[in-house]
């Protein structure tokens, strides 16, 4: 219990630092030094001290949504086994709750964007809704895959926390496809480069960033921190599948190293590729769906 709380605290505190890795990798590719390592914390401190400004057209939904999004992602992190240790909360069916919590967060961000009555934000909201829905299909195929192989309906049993058996032993090559599919979902859900460019400054092409244009002060801080935590959530999920060492002395450093490499990989991809045309994005997400379904078919074939 205490262990889970300590790990969760470390995760929440280090998430802004970790997402700095992506910025640093991109800066390194351009031959720049990039911002300071602790820049994200400074940004958060600055934002928290500011007074939020509300547009006249917004209602309470606009103020509510950052809080709900943040609460959703924090609860989701409580359900995630970090570094292969049992999570804070775990019960049968928590995977469904987990992805619904993330979905709830997205729903409220979209609602807040619609609430501002800005045409650009409505556009971003529509895109986020479409891509998010498509990505959810992949996520649920992945869950079915886990269900078939590992049994149980909690994330801890899916990742083999208690049985000490990771996915690799059971699934073999299908696990590769699942990991690639999950990585594509990570890029989609966190609005990273092939899907969305987080550094773009043109409302017409933005997806996630355009929805939070009207937020300011502490609420923007909540949304930013929430998106860093969400990125950490997906990276940690993939890292849990990638390094299934449970209860060995070196598992925590190894896990940390895997998470850091995932962030470096994201930075690498962002540096060498451009974002897709918007009508190509559903294709990208469909590939991840097809990959997950491939893996599912093979897992069924192997057990026949």
């Amino acid at each position: 219990m205490t262990q889970a709380i300590i790990l969760l605290t470390i995760a929440v505190i280090s998430a802004p630092l970790l997402s700095m890795i992506i910025v640093k990798v991109k800066a390194w590719f351009c031959g720049r030094r990039g911002p300071a390592w602790l820049q994200n914390y400074s940004t958060l401190t600055k934002l928290v001290q500011k007074t939020p400004v509300y547009s006249n057209s917004t209602t309470f939904i606009f103020r509510l949504s950052p809080v709900i999004t943040m609460a959703g992602i924090l609860t989701a992190l409580c359900l995630l086994p970090i570094a292969g240790r049992p999570p804070l909360l775990s019960f049968a069916g928590d995977v469904i709750l987990l992805f619904y919590l993330l979905g709830l967060g997205r729903f409220f961000i979209i609602s807040a964007a619609m609430d501002t009555a800005s045409p650009f934000e409505g556009m971003g909201a529509a895109r986020e809704a479409l891509f998010g829905t498509l990505a959810e299909a992949t996520v649920f195929v992945v869950l079915i895959f886990f269900e078939r192989l590992q049994g149980g309906a909690s994330l801890a049993s899916y990742l083999g926390i208690h049985t000490n058996a990771g996915l690799w032993g059971n699934a073999g090559a299908a696990a590769i496809m699942i990991i690639i599919a999950l990585f594509m979902v990570l890029l989609t859900e966190n609005a990273r480069v092939p899907v969305d460019d987080p550094t773009t400054h043109l409302e017409l092409t933005m997806i996630h960033e355009v929805m939070v244009l009207d937020h300011s002060g502490p609420e923007l801080a909540l949304i930013e921190a929430g998106s860093w935590l969400k990125l950490f959530f997906y990276s940690a999920f993939i890292a849990d599948i990638l390094c299934p060492l449970r209860g060995r002395p070196l598992d925590f450093p190894l896990f940390a190293l895997t998470v850091i490499s995932i962030y470096i990989l994201i930075g690498f991809i962002e540096s060498i590729s451009a974002r897709y045309k918007l009508n190509m994005v559903p294709k990208f997400i469909l590939i991840s769906f097809a990959l997950a379904l491939f893996a599912l078919i093979f897992s069924m074939g192997a057990s026949l």
Binding site: W168, G169, A171, G172, A173, A174, A175, I176, M177
Partner: peptide, 12 residues
């Protein structure tokens, strides 16, 4: 355990 050939086939 996962074999190298299966890994390659996944990439195919």
């Amino acid at each position: 355990m996962i074999s190298f050939a299966d890994l390659l086939l996944a990439f195919v």
